[in-house]
Design a protein around this nucleic acid. Structure first.
Lengths: 107, 107
DNA sequence: ATCGTACTACGATATTCATCGAACTTCGAC
DNA sequence: GTCGAAGTTCGATGAATATCGTAGTACGAT
């Protein structure tokens, strides 16, 4: 292949392609909301396998894909690992207060 | 029956019973988000029949029930009409910025 | 009481989607 | 190359739900 770098961004919507419907639907699932909470506690992002969740690996991958395609997280490849991180800047710019409001919820 | 008043509140969760999962899931449906946008433009609330939406009356009622049971709207009875209004105070207290962020979305 | 309006409840249907296991891909290590 | 680890993809399945039409309830007006 013609990939020169060892790190690569996975495809995701541009900021202006993010739809609020999709974001809310993505956040409105308990497991995905857990993922977002975990990501909010880090600045570097988390690998799929490091997310301790009550679901199998394939379900985990499914949820991360939903979050990426809706514009909530971005994912980069590092070796065999895929590091996901919250798209805080984009979300705060599009929906100021939304993320903080969600994270403020006690549970 | 023993109802003395002509106006009555329909059952809804108390503020401390509202779950963020349910709120986000309720907001993450296009028709329901339209309803919330319309309600945000009024202070008095809107009757079910006055919501102009591309669905039938029964579907409209269904969505309003979802919104009420998740804690997004409150509904009071006035004669044969049911007036729904955004629970702004409760939502702002629980998730400060969430509602404003959602409503700030261009579409 | 009768009628019409406003809305809800019920049953049916189709779609969406969360979940899993198994097979596959990709990468690093040996 | 071979192996193992990390993740994804591919059905399959079961549950949730958006939608509708119809029937039913509640209320006001006549």
């Amino acid at each position: 292949m013609d990939c020169v770098s060892t790190s690569k961004q996975l495809p995701q919507p541009d900021r202006d392609e993010i739809r609020v419907d999709a974001v809310l639907q993505a956040l409105g699932e308990p497991v995905r909301l857990m993922i977002v909470r975990m990501l909010a506690d880090t600045s570097e992002g988390i690998a799929c396998g490091e997310l301790e969740l009550p679901v199998t690996a394939s379900t985990r991958a499914h949820h991360l894909k939903m979050l990426r395609e809706s514009g909530v997280v971005s994912t980069r490849t590092e070796g065999t690992r895929r590091i996901s991180a919250l798209r805080r800047e984009d979300l705060d710019a599009l929906y100021p207060g939304l993320l903080d409001g969600v994270l403020a919820a006690k549970q």
